[in-house]
Design a protein around this nucleic acid. Structure first.
Length: 849
RNA sequence: GCCCGAGUGGCGGAACGGCAGACGCGGAGGUCUCAAAAACCUCUGUCCACCAGACGUGUGGGUUCGAAUCCCACCUCGGGCACCA
């Protein structure tokens, strides 16, 4: 009797079996090639949603497939467990963040097990576990020793809602990445990782990442933002207008336009600006600009087309190219933390400077022109300054010819132009400038004014300054007795704060900031290679064996943040001689987002999060796994709809019955499909069709798995099922039993990475195998058997299809061309055949006039 | 403004420069059944009464015997960066 497919029964059964037999425990079999398959670890926010299901299903299929292909697979899972949501939940429920976090971890872990994911749970890393975060502190101290940690005061992004500072990467269009509040600028002393020291290498090594999506590399390159230019020194004049030895340096990519520099700009928060105007008649005007700029939010700045404001400072600087004195203004569009915070303004060649000059009536001197500019005729070849105003309505920022530019007149100007080189060479000789490179990337601000994070292991001593906690005293533990709901923080926790200075032994204060949670996720993948190490974050041999990650899978939202930080960590740890590779992730698959029925991104606040539980209850985890893979290629965004899930359920049921029939279990399902009149010849043809299809599909599915074409792999499996179904027309006693078993076994094997419970049940209970599919080698195929002996080819006349003919697959080119012409004799009658194109197995195209 | 992607039936999506729409969903009809469900079998891009045929991969050009695919221009949508000097 044929049995019914009941996932509710078999899924828990196999999950228990896998757990009982440690099926996914890593064997560390060094005779096999290694493969590290990793999905980005989740934040334990609550239960899992379809985005998790998609991400982890993709990873699980790759891991299971790799295991069958004979790799020593490392496939771990953990939790990115520090962070603000836990703290907010704790405040709301008058509880402790750890309680919320660990409860959610248990929930998610149960869901992952219910999905049948093949993780080695003995290697789990939980970021808020002292066993893990102590090594985060240890690594911080190694960075510190190497000079990559800095504590300094500067304007920083402050999120009023999250009540903490944020890294540059965590601010999008002036808003907090987590809560979307408008961030404020504040001057605060904060801790930084000097990621900018690695800017060039982080940019250069993107070229090594052939297995990364181009768009992610592009985004990182944009973010790093390398800009080649020059630093030029302008001598500052004293209050009476006499040049001094003091200089102000600007960064420019357009040194060729120095002759057009008619004023000079400082950022509102330029260091020393207030002192410069203190007590002068210009103080009030400058201060007004400074105050206004402070009020302007980053969101408003991001608009871009904001009206510019500025004020004269009363001071002058000397343009080094022509010794001209030009006025220094403060301007709100100059950014203090890019370049030097000072800008040489060239209104004729820069749209922003142009607008500023128009508004404040400053001279616009044309020094670079296009050849078709009406002014060009008057100024062509003119070296001295003749014209000091223009009637343009916008700046000319393209490549052009220099005019009114002294000996450089006539040269081609523009970014990276010969004029830039010539001018910089001369300025360098005079000691007034040099070529340099600027990066948009800023240092990574890692301190957070929050409790639920990894404490920064530092001690503030009045006598010794800021000193690291001795390594033997690590970890600095988070105090557990804290009442966040009552407003307590680390900064109010006396017991935590008070300590002794490890250098001088006097009473001292502990640092109360914690580290950005992105520090935790920047190295967790290394810890998985050696998760229980008590001496070091990881053993060098082990990390070198399993790293880099061969296949990393996660969302595009981490294209910059997590992936850039992790690359930085890896490079620093390499330079600390803790590991021997340059990049952490060899291949990266960014799976597309799962959106709701209306194409909206899912979020808790919108209340449109779709959870898999109901679907699992109705159709089982295997159907959900298969369906989400079948919906779209993994890297494409996907609009969720349950419409096709029923179809996947039908498919699995069909396979379920089919395998039993193929294995010889009593056949009552195909009764109305059986054709008792079928001829021996037809039987033979159906069998050879099936043999060919089986070999073709094993080849196709193997190829598709290699390139993550899971949707087409599943489609190919459906095609095999359809062909098998056609074969089942043959009455049971006339079927080729060996072929039937071969089809059943290979079908089940190929399905097993996608639908593991379903497959193991059939494998053991119907096909009678003892070993789990997880330990079974991937099926092979014979490419020769996948070839058809006869193929249908298309006959075209002038590229239009006119007929189809069946030909032997090995037909000669001449025979094919002749047959083609015979087939369409009518259509080409009276025309001259100019050319006949034959594509073997595909078509014959007859070009006739 | 700069830099990436993507536009294919009613829907999700297939197609090394070579039969557009595989596979699935949805839809229509049928078999089985007292009936229904399930299962099974046909059909299902558009136009045309049918055949024949014509038209069809965002738009317009081009290359080619042949273009969804390659090139150019444009349109629309999505993403990233952005007063970055």
């Amino acid at each position: 009797m044929i049995s019914e497919y009941n996932p509710q029964e078999i899924e828990p059964k196999w999950q228990k079996h896998w757990a009982d037999t440690d099926a996914f425990k890593m064997t560390e079999d060094h005779d096999k090639p290694k493969k590290y398959v990793l999905e980005m670890f989740p934040y334990p926010s609550g239960d899992i949603h379809m985005g998790h299901v998609r991400n982890y299903t993709i990873g699980d299929v790759i891991a299971r497939y790799s295991k069958m292909r004979g790799y020593d697979v490392l496939h771990p899972m953990g939790w990115d467990a520090f962070g603000l949501p836990a703290e907010n939940a704790a405040i709301k429920h008058k509880s402790h963040p750890a309680k919320w976090t660990y409860a959610n971890i248990e929930t998610q872990k149960a869901s992952f097990k219910r999905m049948g994911f093949s993780y080695d749970w003995d290697r789990t890393v939980v970021a808020c576990d002292p066993e893990y975060y102590r090594w985060g502190q240890w690594i911080f101290e190694q960075f510190w020793k190497k000079g990559l940690v800095e504590r300094r005061e500067s304007p920083v992004n402050w999120c009023p809602e999250c009540k903490t500072v944020l890294a540059n990467e965590q601010v999008t269009e002036g808003r907090c990445w987590r809560c979307d509040s408008v961030v404020e600028k504040r001057d605060l002393t904060q801790w930084y990782f000097k990621i900018t020291d690695y800017a060039q290498e982080l940019l250069d090594d993107l070229d090594k990442l052939e297995g990364w999506p181009e768009r992610v590399k592009q985004m990182q390159a944009n973010w790093i933002g390398r800009s080649e230019g020059a630093e030029v020194d302008f001598a500052l004049c004293d209050a009476d207008g006499n040049p001094t030895d003091e200089t102000i340096t600007v960064f420019t990519t357009r040194a060729d336009t120095l002759f057009g520099c008619s004023f000079f700009l400082l950022a509102p928060d330029y260091k020393g600006l207030e002192e410069m105007v203190a007590g002068t008649q210009y103080e009030a005007g400058v201060k007004e600009v400074i105050e206004e700029a402070k009020k302007t939010t980053a969101v408003e700045r991001a608009q871009g087309d904001k009206e510019k404001h500025g004020a004269f400072t009363g001071r002058y600087v000397v343009n080094p190219i022509n010794d001209e004195k030009i006025p220094v203004w403060v301007a709100d569009y100059v950014i203090s933390d890019y370049g030097t915070g000072a800008v040489m303004a060239v209104p004729c060649g820069d749209q922003r400077d142009f607008e500023f000059a128009r508004k404040y009536d400053l001279p616009i001197i044309p020094i670079i022109l296009g050849k078709d500019d009406p002014l060009f005729e008057q100024l062509d070849g003119v070296q001295e300054r003749k014209i000091t105003s223009v009637d343009w309505d916008k700046a000319y920022d393209a490549e052009g010819i220099l005019v009114q530019s002294g000996k450089y007149t006539g040269m081609v100007g523009g970014k990276h132009s010969p004029a830039v080189d010539a001018i910089m060479e001369d300025l360098a000789k005079a000691g007034k400038g040099k070529k340099t490179v600027q990066f948009r990337l800023r240092d990574w601000l890692i301190s957070r004014q929050r409790y639920w994070g990894n404490p920064i292991p530092a001690i503030h001593c009045e006598h010794c300054g800021v000193v690291p906690v001795p390594e033997e005293d690590l970890p600095v533990l988070l105090p557990e007795d804290i009442d966040l709901a009552a407003g307590e923080t680390l900064a109010t926790h006396e017991e935590f704060i008070n300590c002794t200075c490890p250098v001088c032994g006097r009473p001292a204060k502990r640092e109360t900031d914690t580290m950005d949670t992105f520090t935790c996720s920047s190295w967790y993948y290394l810890r998985y290679t050696d998760p229980h190490n008590k001496e070091l974050p990881f053993d060098k041999d082990k990390v070198n064996r399993y790293m880099p990650v061969d296949q990393y899978i996660g969302g595009i939202e981490h294209a910059i943040l997590h992936l850039l930080y992790s690359r930085f960590f890896t490079k620093v740890l390499r330079d600390l001689d803790l590991l021997d590779f340059d990049e952490p992730f060899t291949n990266l698959l960014c799976q597309g987002m799962v959106k709701d029925e209306h194409g909206e991104t899912m979020s808790k606040s919108k209340g449109n999060v779709i959870a898999p539980e109901d679907m699992i209850a109705k159709y089982g985890a295997d159907a959900v796994r298969a369906y989400i893979l079948f919906m779209a290629p993994p890297d494409k965004d996907l609009q969720w709809s349950t419409d096709g899930l029923e179809g996947m359920w039908r498919f699995l049921n069909k396979v379920w019955r089919m395998v039993q029939i193929l294995a010889g279990v009593e056949d009552d399902y195909s009764a109305n499909n059986v054709n008792n009149e079928i001829s021996d010849e037809q039987i033979k043809k159906l069998a050879s069709d099936l043999t060919r299809e089986l070999n073709r599909v094993v080849g196709k599915v193997t190829d598709d798995f290699e390139k993550f074409g899971f949707n087409t792999a599943i489609a190919a499996l459906m095609e095999l099922v359809n062909t098998t179904n056609a074969y089942l027309k043959v009455p049971a006693d006339k079927r080729d039993a060996n072929l039937c078993i071969e089809v059943a076994e290979k079908l089940v094997m190929m399905l097993s990475p996608i639908t593991p419970h379903f497959s193991d049940e059939l494998w053991h209970e119907v096909l009678g195998h003892g070993e789990d599919l997880n330990d079974t080698p991937w099926p092979d195929y014979d490419p020769e058997l996948a070839k058809a002996s006869e193929v249908e080819i298309v006959v075209q006349v002038n590229g239009k299809i006119k007929a189809r003919v069946n030909v032997p697959a090995d037909i000669s080119e001449d025979d094919a061309k002749e047959l083609g012409q015979k087939t369409v004799a009518e259509q080409i009658e009276g025309k001259t055949v100019r050319k006949v194109i034959y594509v073997p197995g595909k078509l014959i195209n007859i070009v006739a006039k």
